[in-house]
């Protein structure tokens, strides 16, 4: 069971969190003209990296905040956790 540091609450066990997927994907801005393929790529395509992966988690049974985790998808080592507006 992973041990994840919520940037707001501190270290907690994984069972308090829900996974939220790739955090490197940026939603296109509202009302912005973009091509079909740009949009579809946002909706469906994921790099699914082996190794360092920036991803969202949601402290669903805690403070209910979304945040970013940089984790190794092969070893599950967690390098860093960040608030959504922070970057590595």
């Amino acid at each position: 069971m992973l041990h994840i540091k919520c940037p707001y609450c501190g270290m907690r066990s994984q069972n308090e969190f829900a996974y939220g997927g790739d955090a490197s994907v940026k939603r296109p801005e509202l009302n912005k003209e973009i091509s079909d393929s740009e949009w579809d790529n946002f909706v469906y395509l994921r790099k699914s990296l082996r190794g360092k992966h920036l991803e969202f988690w949601h402290h669903i049974s805690g403070c209910r905040q979304w945040f970013k985790v940089q984790r190794d998808t092969a070893t599950h080592e967690i390098f860093k956790t960040l608030k959504p507006n922070e970057d590595i």
Partner: peptide, 18 residues
């Protein structure tokens, strides 16, 4: 399981997660 790893070598991104 490893599709995305090889796809990366081909500069492809796929609708897949491992």
């Amino acid at each position: 399981g490893s599709t995305s790893i090889l796809a990366e070598k081909l500069n492809m991104t796929l609708p897949i997660e491992t």
